[in-house]
C-alpha cells in the first residue's frame, strides 16, 4: 500500500495523471512551487517507510513514465503543463536510484536537485501569467527583446531543469546513468534517451517564449531585487551541482 502511495508522489503512470491534474488546478505560483518541492519528498518518505523490497516491475513502469512524459513534453506549449510533465519525468527516475539501494539523503538531494529549478520555473511562469494572461509558447514570443532580465533568468532555469552541467540535475542523471551502464545497459540507454527528450522539450519552450521580434506588448521586467534573488538561487543551484559531483566519488 505504501508503494502504491509512493507511486502517486513519485509519479508512476497512470497515477501520474493525478499529480498533473492537481498541478493544473493550482493557479497560484508560490503554491505551485511549494507543491513541486514537497511532493517528491513525500513520495520518498513513503518509499523509505515501506519495509519490503520494491518489485522489479516498478523499474519498467518508472522508465516508461519518464519516457512518456518527456516525449509528451516536446509538444506542449503551456508552461504549467510543461513543468508538470518534466517533474513527472524527472521524479520517476528516482525509482532506479531507490532500487539500487542508495542511502536516503543523496536521493532526497537528487529530488531537490530536480524540484528546485522546477519551482523557480513555476514562479517565472506565474509572472508571465500575471502579465500576459497566459504562459504560452508562440503566443507572444520575443521576450529576449522586451524582457531581457526575465529571459536571462528563464534560460538558466530551463537549462537547470533539463539537467545541463553543472546543475544538480546533470550530476543526478549522470550518476544514475553511469551506475547502471554495465549492470543494466537497457536502463542506461533509456535514461540517456529521456535526457535527450528533455533537451528537445526545453529548447522548444525557450524558443517559443524568448525568440522572435519584439512583440510590442508592454510589461515590466524583473526588478533588481528579483533579479538578484533569482541569480542567487541559480548560483546556489550551481554550487550544489558541484556538491553532487563530489557525491559521485
Amino acid at each position: 500500500m505504501l508503494y502504491w502511495l509512493a507511486g502517486l508522489f513519485l509519479p508512476l503512470f497512470p497515477l501520474s495523471m493525478g499529480f498533473n491534474a492537481l498541478l493544473v488546478r493550482v493557479r497560484n505560483g508560490p503554491l505551485r512551487a511549494v507543491l513541486l518541492l514537497v511532493w517528491p519528498q513525500l513520495g520518498l518518505s513513503l518509499a523509505f517507510a515501506a519495509s519490503n523490497e520494491v518489485p522489479d516491475w516498478v523499474l519498467i513502469v518508472a522508465l516508461f513514465t519518464a519516457a512518456l512524459y518527456a516525449f509528451r513534453a516536446i509538444a506542449l506549449r503551456e508552461m504549467g503543463q510543461w513543468i508538470g510533465f518534466l517533474a513527472t519525468s524527472a521524479w520517476a527516475l528516482l525509482w532506479p536510484v531507490l532500487m539500487s539501494g542508495a542511502e536516503a539523503s543523496p536521493i532526497r538531494l537528487y529530488a531537490l536537485g530536480f524540484s528546485v529549478p522546477l519551482a523557480l520555473l513555476a514562479l517565472l511562469g506565474a509572472r508571465l501569467e500575471s502579465h500576459f494572461g497566459a504562459a504560452y509558447t508562440g503566443l507572444y514570443g520575443g521576450l529576449a527583446e522586451t524582457l531581457p532580465r526575465f529571459s536571462g533568468v528563464l534560460v538558466f532555469v530551463v537549462l537547470a531543469v533539463i539537467a545541463v552541467p553543472v546543475f544538480p540535475g546533470f550530476f543526478a542523471l549522470f550518476n544514475t546513468v553511469v551506475s547502471t551502464t554495465a549492470a543494466a545497459p537497457s536502463v542506461a540507454l533509456s535514461l540517456v534517451v529521456i535526457w535527450l527528450l528533455w533537451s528537445w522539450a526545453g529548447v522548444r519552450l525557450l524558443q517559443g517564449l524568448i525568440i522572435g521580434p519584439a512583440n510590442g506588448i508592454e510589461a515590466p521586467d524583473l526588478s533588481a531585487a528579483a533579479l538578484w534573488s533569482y541569480t542567487s538561487a541559480i548560483v546556489v543551484l550551481l554550487i550544489s551541482g558541484l556538491y553532487f559531483a563530489g557525491d559521485l566519488l
Binding site: 546513468v177 553511469v178 540517456v192 534517451v193
Partner: peptide, 8 residues
C-alpha cells in the same frame, strides 16, 4: 550520450 555511457 555515447560519451556518458563510455564513461560509465
Amino acid at each position: 550520450l555515447p560519451l556518458v555511457l563510455a564513461a560509465g
